[in-house]
Design a protein around this nucleic acid. Sequence first.
DNA 1: CGACGTGTAAC
DNA 2: CCTTTTACACGTCG
Length: 358
Amino acid sequence: MQRIILHIDLDSFYASLEELRHEDIRGKPVVICVFSGRSEDSGTVSTANYKARELGIKSGMPISLAKRLAKDKDVAFLQNDIEYYRTVSDRIMEIIEEEADIFQQVSIDEAYLDVTKKSMDKWDNAKKIAEKIKKKIKEQEGLTCSVGIGPNKLVAKMASKHQKPNGLTIIKDAEVKEFFENLPVSKIHGIGEKTTKILDELGIKTAKELASSDIKILEKKFGKNKSKLLLDKSQGIDDSPVEQKDRQQISRLGTLKEDTDNIEVIFEKIKELATDMKKKIEKVSFRTVSIITIDTALKTQTRSETVQVTNNLDSVLPITKSLLENFLKENSEKKLRRVGIRVSNLVYKKEQKTIGDF
DNA sequence: CGACGTGTAAC
DNA sequence: CCTTTTACACGTCG
């Protein structure tokens, strides 16, 4: 069955919203920051608008480095305000959902739509739907977005990335082959740094080379499942459905004021994170609670315990403390930089058919 | 198989 | 110097 899928990506979403509410920064390079609170400029860049990207500022980069790149230039650095962004995102997602047969929000600024029925199998109708969505978001929220249209989620995603900001790219099934052929593997969505490096060591640089590579050799490095996935991806093949999934886990991470192995200090932080998390888990219960530790070498480790289903976070705090105690005992040479708490194995109240539901 | 821990990837 | 949150796959162990 031939599908028509849209991927919608709001253009430098956080920065655009800040430009809308602060006229004094409009047209300037804008950098949205997540400050960790350790020292003056510790933290990372969450979003840089296109003017800031021209200066070499990119998301994920340390704020201190971004400030060096911005030296002597008129660049606006702002603290992020996720609550506000989420409010606007919710309004926009409502606009988008109206136009879809099936809707899947994948992050605060991205969504997939299956519009096979609404477009009556016609690419041209799908394009009209995309234009309508772009127009509505522009009129109602003053924002632009980039839209990709393709026969599946992978291609739609790659299409939306192809031209931005304010882009609209259609890659019909007949055009998929040509689009992928000469693409470096690192440009394929889902192929990151590690996979690219291993492929490079195998002499595989482009999607075409990956597509025609020996699966036996891939399987030695990646295993059967991932190899199949890689071969599919290299040809723009993706059968995954557009579907809204329930969240599988909820977590909170925080940075400690200073590196420490003091259990009381660390546990205080966990309690603080737990308090923030309570609001998020009002409507769900969970069976597993974990602590997440990140040491001074930035190595992440987790410890978890599965218990009777509960929705009372306070009741499992003693468990997180003993997990933490054991971890510190086993890793007495380590100090922690960051800690986190996570609940998983979520159980939703409303009877919804879930995979593990039989 | 379920529980647990790690690694990869994306935002 | 190096944020946040989530998904998913895989290996291991009992």
